[in-house]
Nucleic acid binder design. Structure first.
Lengths: 342, 342
DNA sequence: TTGTAAGCGTTATCAA
DNA sequence: TTGATAACGCTTACAA
């Protein structure tokens, strides 16, 4: 294995000094075209590659950003990462992925780790458990841009890129009302997270505006998976006053609902409508396609990345930016009750 | 913003030298318990955090590994990453994700970038276009572990963790034969990739062993998406001698096939059986669940990570390890023609 | 235009 | 057991 070439090797080969080599390599104006050319040539010959670690240590900029999220293997999150990469890679940044597994302690740990690694910024979707904001303040204290995406927590000095969950939920619910549904149930996941709380508020407001009385028994808090959706639907349908529609804050739960309803021979959408949230790809794959609210994860990732880039360029001026993206309801078979929509 | 504390700050506070502080922090035996305790205390007081960049520059170990893949927002790949993280995070490694978008040049670029960032290892699933192995040799020349997962290329000195695609395809095809299918078509994606070539070979062998003559017209090379699957199936069904089953090397294509077959009222599985490959979650979500070959992406990720860890510990002894994981066929409705399976 | 030298935050070697 | 010093590879005042 050949020892790695440094700027000193180039310098030695040309009988000049490392400083000059550095200048040549960095397009510094204070250098003659001749030496510059020679340095570039020799660098190529010796197969010189800059050591980013050394550059980072010197400059204080690692050109790495940390992306923190609950789980990477979720459609939504992996798409957000994709968006972030699209924006950041061309600017020379690398992305370090850290999962929190919805655990506050783990979240604090990975953040500390990222800070130790001297990342230039942190983009995060907070874990469900997170209450404490101390680890976020640590980031800001170091003057490192902190950008929340999707799931945020209010921290002074941090920016955020979120979806208008309230609006998404409102539209979904209004759509169900427009289809003639009178008793619309709601599946929520974790009301301590803003996204879910906003969805339930949007749902409530739409009911109100539609002249439908809110029924506490029709709101169920469950895990975001198919089984939970099935079970919850079973219970709902056994109520004295069962619903005729479900607006689910989660796609898997919506799928579970549909599966149970089919098993008890409830016709969808004729007798029962279902709308999910996230527009997960699978919602379009079924024979009975599922209506869902799209969160545009790619755009969210790109936007979060752009906000980071703005902040990094603004030197010491602290900007605190809150971007809210507009959701879009994808109406599919599971809620197309009216002929006019067919 | 408080200036960051370094070991010098601790040293100054205690009237000792940075070297001593370093020793205390690193559990070096050559230090008195007293000073060690004092250092630890002061470090805590001053909120000292090690600078991983400096440590990395000094030691030559960045504690970062690069994970290269075509696209991160694919179920399979995001699950592999999940597996890699599970294994590597507890060992103090961070994972830098790089996408190649199936482009050889981009692949070479990100690898160069990772090398410049002094990663301690590279785990990669090669892009479809990749023919040249020069960028891989660059890695090995620097004595950095190179581990291929899923999609590999033969490079001397590199390790690999792959699936026995041949076996998976063989089982899937045999299963179709066992169900009584006589004319089994095959969808492949890109035969220049070993995984697809192995699948087609396994398919051929199973046909042979089952006494079925291989029919060139029943093998179709298409993109891995639903539309392509639909179109290809349409063409197949218009042949003078249409197939009665499809073994697809891609799940989306299998879904496309099913969608087209349904649209022309072919009964599945009674008149036509379909088996996919990857066991993507959606295959279980449909009403007509789709049989598929599971690739155990999580295990693949964990295994690749373990191989890396072995190599990193083996100092200069060069080990070249080839791990082959066993696929498992998930039999579902789309291919359960025989009553005995119902 | 180029060279000198210090410094980024650590750790390792050698002395004391 | 501790200190002094050099080194990792690079950049940047300041001098020449």
């Amino acid at each position: 294995m050949s020892k790695k070439t440094t700027i000193y090797d180039i310098a030695k080969a040309l009988n000049i000094t490392a400083a000059t080599v550095s200048r040549a390599l960095n397009n510094n104006p204070r250098i003659s075209d001749d030496t510059k050319r020679m340095v570039l040539e020799t660098a190529a010959e010796l197969n010189y590659k800059p050591n980013r670690l050394a550059m980072a240590l010197k400059s204080g900029k690692s050109k790495n950003v940390g992306v923190v999220l609950p789980y990477i293997n979720r459609t939504f999150f992996s798409n957000v990462i994709h968006g972030i990469e699209e924006e950041l890679n061309p600017m020379g940044y690398n992305v370090i992925i850290c999962q929190t597994h919805e655990d506050e302690k783990k979240e604090a740990d990975v953040i500390q780790n990222l800070l130790n690694a001297q990342v230039d910024g942190i983009l995060i979707s907070v874990s469900r458990e997170t209450k404490n904001t101390e680890h976020f303040n640590q980031i800001l204290k170091k003057n490192i841009p902190l950008i929340f995406y999707d799931r945020k927590i209010n921290v002074k000095g941090a920016s955020s890129v979120t979806l208008d969950d309230y609006q998404g939920a409102y539209e979904a619910t209004k759509h169900l009302i427009d289809q003639g549904c009178k008793k619309i149930a709601h599946f929520t996941v974790d009301r301590s997270l803003e996204i879910y709380e906003n969805r339930i508020q949007g749902y409530k407001q739409a009911l109100k505006d539609g002249g439908i009385k809110f029924n506490m028994n029709h709101v169920v808090t469950i895990e975001s998976d198919i089984e939970a959706g099935k079970e919850a639907t079973k219970k709902l349908m056994e109520l004295a006053n069962p619903p005729d529609a479900i607006f689910s804050a989660s796609d898997p739960c919506a799928l579970g609902a549909i599966q149970h309803l089919k098993s008890i021979n409830v016709r969808i959408p004729e007798d029962f409508c279902v709308v999910g949230f996230s527009n997960d790809p699978f919602t379009q794959f079924m024979e009975l396609t599922i209506s869902s609210v799209d969160q545009s994860p790619l755009l969210m990732g790109r936007t979060a990345a752009k906000v980071f880039l703005e902040q990094i360029n603004e030197d010491d001026i602290k900007i605190e930016k809150q971007v809210v993206l507009t959701p879009s309801l994808k109406i599919r078979k599971s809620s197309m009750k009216l002929d006019s929509d067919l």
